[in-house]
Nucleic acid binder design. Sequence first.
DNA 1: ACCTGAAGTGTTATGATATAACAAAAAGGA
DNA 2: TCCTTTTTGTTATATCATAACACTTCAGGT
Lengths: 160, 160
Amino acid sequence: MTAFGFHAHDHAHCISTTLHRAEAYCAAHGLKFTPIRRRALEILLAEHRALGAYDLLAELAKDGLGTAPPVAYRALDFLTKAGFAHKIEGLNAYIACAHLGADHSPAFLICTECKSVAEAETQATQGRLGETARAVGFRINRTVIEALGVCPNCQDQPCA
Amino acid sequence: MTAFGFHAHDHAHCISTTLHRAEAYCAAHGLKFTPIRRRALEILLAEHRALGAYDLLAELAKDGLGTAPPVAYRALDFLTKAGFAHKIEGLNAYIACAHLGADHSPAFLICTECKSVAEAETQATQGRLGETARAVGFRINRTVIEALGVCPNCQDQPCA
DNA sequence: ACCTGAAGTGTTATGATATAACAAAAAGGA
DNA sequence: TCCTTTTTGTTATATCATAACACTTCAGGT
């Protein structure tokens, strides 16, 4: 059990169902869910926190799945392109997608105390940014929306 | 002249007024607007584009203002803390603030073709992200809001 | 079964971004 | 002046990311 959207939940279940969904998605789209890629997703899913590429690599190395940086970056490249993971730009770190399957524009609430991350949905084309874009004729391809702050759990423990 | 919010404008004037505003702000707040810091802001202002720290350093070096990375990072640290510049997380690059003086939550429209950047204002606590944050009790300290896409100028020149 | 081409993997090296640490100099107040 | 704080100069190193190339694996066509 760990924070998910800052709430406790059945984490083992959450991991296994997501892995199965990823498997199904790959089968349906002709993508190869190789051992390295599968294990990388599993590692990211093990925490609802952003992991650095080298942290991921260290975990992969423990399983004998590779030791050089490209191993981790290739896996992350696959996972992010497939929509199974996202990069948190503000942290140079990576996190498993919480809404696997849907083609979406994620937004993140990142706790700077405990490093846990919650994923929210946004409609980038709505809101002030979308208005501004339309007003000046800017075409949006991708959005990076991240809020840094303090999650409810950490607010309850002010001096932890 | 270069793009500003993707529109042409009197750029020399824009640089000098912003520098003067920064000077006034520093005087009013007891901050030291040293030659390195002033020149760094001037360099960032010279383009409405995001510049890498090492690009900035190269420019500073031309003026004999330093050659080692900390020189650039210290200047950027000062400028960002003073609100004179922002970091574009999606590019690991830095840009002069277009709304100097106001304490604000900037949002950016970043053209991936010509690298020009427009700065918009947002109210982070409004919109979907703010709703979600309030709903789960998350306290937002800082937001990163960036849209990557194609500016109107580059849409007009599809095969440039 | 065989070839072939595309995708994936192993590995070395390097590039790009950023900071730690500490000494020297400058600025500003008591 | 003297002392403290801030800024600067410099070396070294940490951290994040990719280029390049050889080798392997696997699916599809014949």
